[in-house]
Design a protein around this nucleic acid. Structure first.
Length: 445
RNA sequence: GCUGUGGUGGUGUAGGGGUUAGCACGGCAGAUUGUGGUUCUGCCAGCCCGGGUUCAAUUCCCGGCCACGGCCCCA
């Protein structure tokens, strides 16, 4: 066998690539309408960038290496940290807030499966230098508008606020200092257990830190709330019943949700879920995620929220920021599954180029005779493909059909003498002579 | 990290210890030479890799690689 693609990577032949470009274009178009501008960072970075953000534990999943100068580098596993690095390195003087979008491949050394590859593509945005409910609503609205624009159906948006549970947990007396035995703060452990619905684990944790396990009950009630805006009131009541617990986070969340409903169309499903913790300790405020049921266990297609990372780069005054990452490959998988199920013609809106495609067929003539026309037609915006193999007319028609041409222009010796060519509309079969100049041919298309 | 199933031309497949390894799609060429998407003919092209068992392995066994799924994890 020949050399194969490395495990966990993919090739994208032309048809797949057209689809991907269409999706990227749609996302970027929406981003631009929200004032976001595209940036790009290197595919490899200093290893320190990611250990600083996510801890040394990430190294096991990185494509890390040393260059010839023995610098520790790694292929990037995600794009938020590189963008933050760039902001700190290049954009300190720019007017804030910054609205940045990005797209590119990322690399993680892990087992791959449907929707999970070693080389994958992430699209995302960051809003830097503004925070609070309005900034958060802007970010969610952008996400909603993007998913709406690409034609995704049946997706579920879950919005939470890590502050609600964090405040409640610290109000109960849990510490946010790292516990040496678990490597993470007890508060973070509790959030994770709540997210998983692991009641026993939670009770154990409470006992271990000298708290009455019964204190976990209102938290469980809080965590199990489900629904839309209507869950805010019971949440408010539960929080009020606990001593020393602030309602500030909940108020913020309500403001965000109200702003969102004005900024974007209603998603197919919206749930307020206070356990959307995203497992990350740098999230500080609103957090949200989008799932698509069709994808099963790998169904999360988008996730984000408010986080503190810029202090790592000496810019604490710009924290917190807000943004999200979108799993480009997973969105595409979901769209493909939905298109197949519904028989939809286009998987991604706009993936098919509907402009006319003219196949120019030089027949028994020196191709040089018509090259000027080909060049001029292309320069004037027409898609033109030239027959390059000297096929006979019959074969050339088959070729034109198979490349998706809408029209053919056959130019043979007789035509050259008459200063014309035979133009044929492949869908109707109509055929007629046209003069060999740009205006006449464009007119005939 | 654990685990299930599977790998036959470019694609989809049949077969099976000794075969000219079958079929379909595709690509290329032709059917008396300037008009396609129908038909006919010919050609191109394959048993994932390595080791073992055997007179003989594409077929059976083991390992690897790759593919598809389930758990764990997922910045």
């Amino acid at each position: 066998m020949m050399v194969q693609r490395p495990r966990g990577t993919r090739d994208f032949p032309p048809a797949a690539m057209r689809r991907r470009l269409a999706l990227e274009g749609l996302l970027e178009d929406v981003a631009q309408r929200h004032g976001f501008s595209r940036v790009q960072t290197p595919v490899f970075e200093s290893l320190d960038l990611f250990t600083a953000k996510s801890g040394p534990g990430v190294i096991g999943q990185l494509y890390a290496f040393q260059d010839k100068g023995e610098r520790d580098l790694t292929l990037r596993p995600e794009l938020t940290a590189p963008v933050m690095r760039m902001v700190a390195e290049e954009m300190r003087n720019e007017t804030k807030p910054l609205r940045l979008s990005y797209y590119g491949q990322c690399y993680r050394y892990e087992e791959f499966k449907k929707g999970r590859y070693r080389e994958f593509f992430q699209y995302g945005v960051e809003l830097i230098g503004a925070h609070g409910p309005l900034a958060e609503a802007e970010i969610i609205a952008l996400a909603v508008n993007m998913l709406d624009a690409c034609g995704l159906e049946n997706w579920e948006l879950r919005i939470g606020h890590v502050g609600v549970l964090k405040d409640a947990l610290s109000g109960l007396g849990l510490s946010d200092e790292i516990d040496a035995s678990t490597g993470e703060p007890p508060i973070a452990s509790a959030m994770r257990l709540l997210d998983k619905g692991d009641d026993n684990g939670l009770a154990t944790l409470f006992s271990k830190h000298g708290l009455n396990p019964a204190n976990a009950d209102p938290l469980r009630s809080l965590a199990s709330l489900e629904g839309g805006m209507e869950t805010l009131q019971p949440a408010r009541e539960l929080l009020s019943s606990m001593d020393g617990v602030s309602l500030e986070a909940l108020d913020e969340l309500e403001t965000t949700l109200n702003a969102l409903s004005a900024l974007a169309p209603s998603p197919p499903s919206l749930a307020v879920d206070l356990t959307v913790a995203r497992g990350l300790d740098y999230y500080t405020g609103m957090v949200f995620e989008v799932k698509v049921p069709e994808l099963g266990g790998e169904g999360q297609v988008l996730g984000g929220g408010s986080y503190r990372l810029l202090h790592l780069f000496g810019l604490p005054d710009l924290d917190p920021c807000c943004g999200f990452g979108l799993g480009f490959d997973r969105v595409l998988l979901a769209l493909e599954a939905q298109a197949a199920a519904s028989g939809r013609e286009e998987t991604v809106p706009g993936e098919h180029d509907t402009r006319p495609l003219l196949a120019v067929i030089p027949f028994k003539i020196d191709a040089q005779e018509i090259l000027p026309l080909v060049g001029q037609l292309r320069a004037s915006g027409v898609r033109v493909e030239l027959e390059l193999r000297g096929r006979k007319v019959g074969k050339a028609m088959g070729w034109a059909d198979s490349i998706g041409a809408t029209c053919t222009l056959v130019v043979g010796p007789r035509d050259i003498e008459a200063g014309q060519g035979m133009l044929k509309d492949l869908s109707s079969g109509d055929q007629f002579a046209v003069a060999l100049n740009v205006e006449a041919v464009k007119e005939a298309l």
